[in-house]
Amino acid sequence: MIRNGVAIDDEFAEAFGMKATRVIITAHNPTWARHAAEAATGFATSVIACGCEAGIERELPPAETPDGRPGIAILLFAMSGKELAKQLERRIGQCVLTSPTSAAYAGIREGEPVALGKNLRFFGDGFQASKLIEGRRYWRIPVMDGEFVIEETTGVVGGVGGGNFLVLAATQPDALAACEAAITAMRRIPNVIMPFPGGVVRSGSKVGSRYKALIASTNDAFCPTIRGITNTALGPEVGSVMEIVIDGLTPEDISAAMRAGIDAVVGLGSARGIHRITAGNYGGKLGKYHFRLREIMA
């Protein structure tokens, strides 16, 4: 399959079942909502070492937030509900409770309830108070700038982590420009996050390593600087490869995001140095979900 001069491989992205939740963070203005949201989703690129994968889903205008203030929706993904609860408590406790003017609300009502403010309330040292409004309990925790309002629980649902595609371009600037265009398009898609810095990852990995202590190592088949001495997957025209990883609430959300991203890349075309799109997998045996590039782009 070739689109606008870009070859789309007959490959699939292999993704995994995860546990996910959404939290809405509001603040006095969008800047402070973003400060809190960025901190809460910081250092959350991969479950391997971060405990969870998290990111900003989108900004919310005042009309869309529970308290009518500017807000940001963040999504968090973890391998288990228990780990998600742990990460949620740490991140909201350290990054949102602490952030001036902030408030935090459930962004998902369905699914299993997991503690949001349920345990953080004890920070109030007995001065905390709750309010049940339209069937939902909110905690009011006195803090130095006033009152921190946080909903008692948020819902945990099943999610999908590890949707991805790789952009193979002539030069590093070409690959970066294409990925930036893709991320801009993908951020318009609801229910997904791209957890890596700026949404893009350049250190794709393979399973295993020559060093016993490591379970994964650099994906040498896609590293241009060693193509002469490895079993390379790159043609001579490819000078740089970057990857976009997607976590989403449903497989459909991931498909939609991949389609939007690949469309944006393809839109630039071979004229802007884009040669190929492929996807990462482990042979299809590890992940429950397979996203075939050619089906998505059909």
Partner: peptide, 8 residues
């Protein structure tokens, strides 16, 4: 702040 939620 809780009054915002109540008012809504």
């Amino acid at each position: 702040p809780i009054l915002r939620l109540l008012a809504r």
